[in-house]
Amino acid sequence: MIMQGFRRRPAKMGWGISRLIGLKALVLLSAAYFVHGLGMKLLALPLVYACMIALLVSIASHPSIDLPLLLGKTSSGSFPLWSWIMFSPFLLFIHLFMLFRRFVKNEPLYTEIADGVYVGGWPSSVERLPPGEPAVIDCTCELPRSSTVTETSYLCVATWDTRAPQPSQIESAVRWAVRKRSQNKPVYVHCAYAYI
């Protein structure tokens, strides 16, 4: 029954993260070129840096490469200081994009797919978690563990948005979820957005 929560349902996923962030890199490079042409060379440097980071993320998130470890998210769901510094243009963009998307879209954050098993989007606050202090399986590599989730009730399965975890990661997560459900704890499996 818990395996149903891990099955991917057909959904319109659009361009995927590698194409979307690649497009962002192109826009940033164009902006840097334009600003440089106006004689503001110092202002062009941060744009070029943000472009390089976006290009790196676009390559690392491509399906043929699929390297979610690039961002350095730890098993506890946090990012080391070097990652926050190096990837700040991307990480800040993702956080702002999440806030904007939730403001604009009126989607349910989670759905109960079986008794005590929920799937949905990144819980930015305790109000966005399912009821019952659930154990959380985090399938994102670009968003940190919410401070409302304890480490003992948390499993990180670092995955790029619009990509699937590896079969071994799925098996490990299912075993972890079964243990949590045997303790009568609800389980919340989430990606970045609530595509259900």
Rank of each mutant, 00 (worst) to 15 (best):
L28H: 14
P131S: 00
G14W: 00
I53R: 06
A192D: 14
P63Q: 03
L96I: 09
A177P: 05
W160S: 10
M13A: 07
I170M: 08
T162G: 03
R128F: 00
R145Q: 05
P80K: 07
V35N: 01
A135Y: 05
F100P: 12
P80N: 12
W160K: 11
F79M: 07
K73G: 09
Y110W: 14
T74I: 11
P134M: 01
S58E: 01
T159S: 08
P131D: 04
F6L: 06
P89C: 07
D66P: 01
N184Y: 03
P63Y: 00
Y49L: 03
V57C: 02
W160A: 08
G22E: 01
T140W: 14
I65E: 00
A25G: 11
L20F: 14
S76N: 05
L143T: 13
T74D: 08
P144K: 05
R101G: 02
Y188I: 02
V174R: 01
L55R: 03
K12F: 15
S172M: 04
F97H: 15
E112R: 11
W176N: 04
T162A: 07
S146E: 10
P186T: 07
R145P: 08
L143I: 10
E171V: 15
S18Y: 05
V57M: 01
I137F: 03
A194M: 00
S64Y: 05
V117T: 13
Y193H: 14
F6E: 02
A114H: 15
I94D: 05
L38C: 09
Y193D: 12
L42P: 11
P108F: 09
G77S: 04
S168F: 08
K105R: 15
L29E: 11
P130R: 01
L70N: 09
V187P: 13
I2M: 06
R179N: 11
F79K: 12
L47T: 06
I137E: 00
L26V: 14
V126Y: 15
A135G: 12
A60R: 08
L45A: 03
A54P: 04
G132Y: 00
I85E: 11
G5C: 09
L70G: 06
I21K: 01
P144H: 12
L38V: 06
L29T: 13
R179G: 11
L29N: 08
Y154E: 01
P144W: 03
K24H: 14
G22S: 04
Y118S: 13
I59S: 06
L69C: 11
S78V: 10
L81G: 10
L28S: 05
V178F: 04
A194N: 01
A25C: 06
L92P: 07
L28F: 04
L26Y: 04
P80M: 03
T150H: 12
L56H: 09
V126M: 15
